[in-house]
Amino acid sequence: MASRNNGETPVVSLRDIKKIYQMGDVEVRALRGVDIDIFAGEVVAIMGPSGSGKSTLMNIVGCLDVPSEGAYELDGQDVSRLKDDQLAAIRNHKIGFVFQSFNLLPRTTALANVELPLIYGGIGGRQRRQRAEDALRLVGLGDRLDHKPNELSGGQQQRVAIARALVNDPSMILADEPTGNLDTKTSVEIMELFQRLNEERGITIVFVTHNPETAEYCHRVVRVRDGLVESDERQTATAGIYAHGALHGAVNGHAPIAVKEKGV
C-alpha cells in the first residue's frame, strides 16, 4: 500500500488492521482491514467523516488501543499485541501527541508541562530541564518557560503541547485536529510550525482531521470511509510554498480567504 517503497522500513506499517467492538449483542466493525505505510519524514493527513473509523485508526496508530486483528509495526517493532503498560512505554518513547484541546496540566508551568513525558521516561534532573527548554525554544516559547496555561494564548498553549510532543524525540507526532480550537490566523501559524519542524528536522507527522485546510499542508492524504481506506493520494510540494504565502498573508491581516483560493 506504500506509495513509496525504496527498501526503507516504514515508521508505521499497518497490515489488514481490523477493530471490532462488541456493543451488547451488536458487533460494530469500526475498521475492516486497513493497510497503510508511513515513512520517515512524511506529513500525512488521515481524513474522514465522523463514523468512518478515523478515530479508531488514530487510537491504534497512537498505541492507545490495539487492533482486534492484523499487524501493526511501529519502527519495525510489532506493537499490535502489547499490554497496557507496554503500550504506555511505546507511547512515551515513540509517539508525541498533540490534541485539539491542548490538554495541558492547569496551574503548571509550560516547562513542567513539557517535562511530563520525560518524567515518565525516567529522565531526571538537569537533562530533563535542558531538553524541555530546548523543545520550548524550538516552538518559539523560549521566553515563556514559567508561564502557566492560563497566562498563554491558545496558539501558545498549542505550541507548548507541540513542545511536549517533541521533547522525547519521538518517531512520529500524532496530531488530532490540532487547529480545531484555534482561530484562522493562529491555525496558520501552528500549521507553519509543524511544517517547519518537518522540513528542518525531518519529523514524521500524522494529522487526523476532517479539516481540508490542514490536509493542504500534507504530502499525502489518506481518506477513510466505513472502516476502509477509500483513497491514499500524494500531493505536490505546493503545500510548503502555499504555507509560506499563507503565513505572510496572515501576518499582513488579509490571509484566510486568500489562502483558501490560492491553496485549492
Partner: peptide
Amino acid sequence: TREIGLRKAVGAKRAD
C-alpha cells in the same frame, strides 16, 4: 480524568 488520560497518553503506566 482528562489529566489522567493525558498522563497515560504521554507514557504514564498504571503503577505511575
